[in-house]
Amino acid sequence: MKLEFDAVTKRYGDHTVLDAITAQLEFPHVLALLGPSGGGKSTLLRVIGGLESPETGSLTIDGQRVPTGEKPLRTFRSNIGTVFQSWNLFPHLDALANIMLPLTAVHGLAAEAARDRSLELLERLHLTGHGHKRPAELSGGQRQRVAIARAVAIHPRLLLLDEPTSALDPEMTAEVLEVIADLKSEGRTFILVTHAMNFARSIADQVAFLADGRIVEQGSGQAFFSAPQSETAQRFLAKVLKY
């Protein structure tokens, strides 16, 4: 997959979150966006997912321009699977209904077909028997796996994972990381924002390092972690990998 950013700028009030990003990111399956908090990773992910529109500049995905305007953006978003840090499941629906809703309401599947596909996914994500439970009755790790199932069920062209394990304890983190690793071996394409450096190192084909609203550095996962080029990245890695 190939992403091309052309002078993408995003501001919140006076604060420039993305500062005229011009870059090409190419990766076979997994791109990790890394960097310090407030560096613009999540915002960049949201721009890629069509949840935010940049003030200026444009972005193409595999040569196709990310649209502007509510209606084309909605169609665009519906083909991208997004997983949020705090899962954002619908609390009034059980796990099964959460996974089925986009299928029936947005993608026009019949209830039966949607149910079959959702049940199969629940099984694959080790959630058999939890389909009738509401999010409040599930553990954090289970919730995040339901959220991943919801995102994967639509057969997205691209999956976006925004700090999927930041709100989880170590054991649940392990459950979820395992599922994400499975996604890679299934050959899915996804972009991951994470602070789990060791995981990023093991799973990312390509890494983009963001700080102060810019892509400071990019390279293969291997190269980035063994020999970061920029001083910012060197300092960042030294700090986060120290303990």
Binding site: L51, N79, A105, V106
Partner: peptide
């Protein structure tokens, strides 16, 4: 807000967001 964002992310229309979420 996160609920509305979730609805946006899966591509629900305004009316569908009211109805389902």
């Amino acid at each position: 807000k996160s609920q509305l964002e979730s609805a946006r992310a899966i591509g629900l229309t305004r009316w569908q967001t009211y109805r389902h979420v």
